[in-house]
Design a protein around this nucleic acid. Structure first.
Lengths: 216, 216, 216, 216
DNA sequence: AATGAATGAGGCTTCATTCAT
DNA sequence: CATGAATGAAGCCTCATTCAT
């Protein structure tokens, strides 16, 4: 057994996991390679066996993020109702689970996107995947077919994710002050508040009846 | 005449203005004091006569941001209708005007907030000012008195700003791809899309009639 | 069959051969152990089974160089005339043949000698071997017996090798600009130009008649 | 008075001077920026105020070398006889004077040239300057007009400098074993030994009479 | 008030060498 | 015999900050 057996023997994953912790805590540029190596319990040099540079670690992390998003999309497609499908996205950032997306990291990612072209391309890709996926989800949902109001699916998706991201930014400022559970509730409330904008009464009635999704 | 003579010979303002340019372009931690001094056309040492440290420059910048926000609030209170008042906020980030708030800077600011307690306190303060101001604005508006729907003014404000911030994040990724005018239009569209959620038909009719606010 | 099967499966030789390629291309200190291992098509660790350290590789290389020099001396002693014997030395560096001495490597070797005592001792040894061998060659040649001018054999050898090394240095700067054939011709011309300094007419006449040595 | 007053208040020169000491002692790639800063008695960071990178220091050093060579050329042109003019070049490397050219440094320079294109260009430039200058010197000397033998001035220059460089390489191996005075004598002997190859008796007689040039 | 030379800690990265497999 | 993962020291370079002028 290797000296590191934190659940994943995979070095790459181990490093990315450590990097995520550091990035979420300190931001990309405030995190040193030494920080990551320490968090991962390995030497600095070893990181360079798996990643060409610090930038490559960041990029790999976004790739990872993309996979998480695709995972969310898959789960969402299997949800019994549109509302429940959307709740999946609205609660994804609320688990401090290390492998999960962390609010601070995401905001940092967007900030980094505005300067680092490579990261920008990757983030844009994730965003597009997400937007298309959710637009589709909405377009093909029973709710849409029965009682859609004036907005187009794409517009709904845009609005939903704008609100979601906006709350994320807010969370980052409230930081430790807000518990994961509270954030979760807030996010879901927001989603339900937007609901009547999208669908007329019939769908709304459904929404009010469905129970709040339990954590994970 | 020096390259910097925008009416205020004030060194502090000159430095903050230069810092804003740099921060928006490169981010806080990617910007060196030398970058700022160069952009301001002064020496590095001089910055330290006006600011205790780089962190102090960042903090001062948030303070500045607060003043800008208060300015926006004042202008909003004088707007003839609630919709026009809110449009002021929804279009504030769309002018590349150097003295104006820049999207990338704002996202960076939130990212920084998650780590730097001093910045966090300041940002929270600005956010609270904004939220309270707008909540008030909504609460006392003619529209609210006449045809408010179920949501409370505070909730409306929260939703509005979440959507606003969310679009900001998106803008940062689209970067140069989107013109200021396009962003402006998009923001306003978003605002009007949320409108029916807040107010019933009478107010909506008003919204449809009012002309789109002109630049600045 | 591995890419390395030049008759000697000997690992040591394989490593030294790879090291020579790397050293000639990048210099001692610019070459990493990984470079060598890659060039040799083996793992880094394996090098350490045959050589104690990087320094040991360098030293072994000089030893190798010594063997090459002794080989040259043997061939020179069998040459039909002194001129032809000397031509062997003057053309030794002109074949890009991997197992051959490379100009850049030799210059690097001298540079290294000025600092690394171990290498210095080895290089001095090679130099002494060479000088003695050639001095002898000259002293016992028919030309010398018949028509030597004022210079002593040792002095001739010194002059010859100074000129040879000097041209080597020049070659290194001209680098790719000069073809092997051109360098070869230049070297031989230099040798013949020095000839009249050593021997009077009779020997010179001989020199003019003898054909230019063919490659290798 | 600044804390460093080692004769030259000029920082650039001070750094180059320190670098020369280090390079001569350890070679380019064995010398760390810290070594240079220590030798110069300044901080590492300060070097970067005057030079963009370590490579730039090396390049600047070659530029310096060029200036030294031009200085030598000027002095040579004013020499009373060709022999004395040439002696200037043949003894230039023999003074350990810090501002003077050092053998080990020169050999390293050539070694570096074989890999670093920028350095190569610079060295080639110096070499061309030197060769042209000396060719001219020879072509226009009284000796040449009166009693030149078969060789062309250019060829003489090539031969002279080949021999000179060749001895330099040898010196580097003998290192501390040979005193400056001894090297000096050896170099001059070599020059005089080549003399009869260039000119017939009349000039030779002159050479034998002229006194050996005194140091500097 | 203003400059910019100077410092030195710290960041990213490389690499000789070791060692478990 | 052979591999290549792992280490950690050290190298190059940047940058916030200070201070003499």
């Amino acid at each position: 057994m290797p000296p590191f057996a934190n659940g994943s023997t995979d070095r790459r994953a181990q490093i990315l996991s450590a990097a995520m912790v550091c990035f979420a805590k300190c931001g990309f540029h405030q995190t040193s390679m030494h920080d990551i190596s320490e968090q991962a319990g390995i030497s600095v040099g070893l990181i360079y066996r798996y990643f060409e540079s610090k930038d490559a670690v960041i990029s790999a992390m976004v790739d990872d993020h993309k996979r998480v998003v695709q995972e969310l999309l898959k789960r969402a497609r299997q949800a019994p109702s549109l509302l429940e499908a959307l709740e999946i996205f609205f609660t994804a950032h609320c688990c401090a689970n290390q492998r999960q997306i962390q609010s601070a990291f995401v905001v940092d990612l967007f900030a980094e996107s505005s300067r680092n072209p490579r990261v920008r391309r990757l983030v844009r890709d994730v965003l597009d995947t997400l937007m298309e996926g959710v637009t589709d989800l909405i377009a093909h949902s029973a709710e849409t077919r029965r009682c859609r109001k004036g907005m187009k699916p794409r517009e709904m998706a845009e609005l939903l994710f704008a609100a979601l991201r906006g709350m994320l930014m807010r969370d980052v400022v409230d930081a430790a002050a807000v518990s994961d559970a509270a954030r979760r509730e807030r996010q879901i409330k927001m989603l339900r508040r937007l609901w009547p904008l999208f669908f007329s009464s019939e769908a709304n009635r459904a929404a009010k009846k469905s129970p709040v999704a339990t954590t994970r």
